[in-house]
């Protein structure tokens, strides 16, 4: 039997239909997050307090960058040593999900990346050089971050209060790879930097209609 329950198990409020495609959603009406596992909804914890900050990315507001457009549908805020940054789960014009990290105008769009080798967190020191899929990367940042708050929906389970180790790897020609380590597993994404001055709200114009 497929999933047909669309109510928050905590408060009973309607959940978005898109939950069938996302794996996790923060309830818009109560303080809980909901996770879908094996067609069963269960409460995953609190969604935390998301202080309003100025941002080029706002949930539900589609933006355009060069020839691509992105609709942010989930926002996760992480604190790290210097401050905090936001990770937006966004759907692009082709319907693919991408992560958009936003930290005071430093914006990167990242997609899943297969690292193809077994890594050890102990080897990933700042300045270390690592070969991934034939390319040499340098570890430019090594830190840990804690999830502070969640809004909207996500393709994976995230938990407020959970801490992730992460590494930023810089490669040739501005290539960026981010590694995350949590619960004994690595997740990797490769990204491209985005010039915030070229981000525009996506306007429905006749030539954009149906695009």
């Amino acid at each position: 039997m497929g999933f047909d329950g669309t109510n928050c198990p905590n408060c009973g409020a309607d959940l978005p239909d898109t939950l069938t495609r996302a794996k996790m959603v923060a309830c818009a009406y109560c303080e809980s997050t909901v996770i879908l596992e094996d067609d069963v909804l269960r409460s995953a914890g609190e969604k935390g307090v998301m202080a309003e900050e100025p941002s080029l990315f706002v949930l539900g507001r589609e933006i355009q960058y060069r020839r691509e457009r992105f609709l942010p549908v989930g926002q996760a805020r992480f604190s790290y040593g210097a401050g905090w940054w936001d990770e937006f789960w966004a759907v692009n014009g082709a319907g693919e999900g991408v992560w958009v990290s936003v930290d005071e105008g430093e914006i990167a769009v990242e997609r899943p990346y297969e690292i193809g080798v077994t890594l050890s967190p102990d080897r990933l020191k700042k300045g270390a050089r690592i070969s991934l899929n034939g390319e040499t990367f340098t570890v430019t940042e090594a830190d840990s971050a804690t999830c502070m708050a969640l809004r909207g929906e996500f393709p994976e389970a995230l938990h407020v209060g959970q801490t992730y180790e992460y590494w930023h790897l810089s490669g040739p020609n501005g290539r960026l790879v981010t590694l995350e380590y949590s619960d004994g597993e690595f997740a990797a994404s490769e990204g491209t930097w985005v010039d915030p001055y070229l981000i525009r709200p996506y306007l429905i114009r006749p030539e954009n209609a149906g695009a």
Partner: peptide
């Protein structure tokens, strides 16, 4: 000689 002013915008950075 010239003078550089460091600018900050919460949305666009430095």
């Amino acid at each position: 000689g010239w003078t550089n002013y460091q600018l900050y915008s919460p949305t666009h950075g430095y």
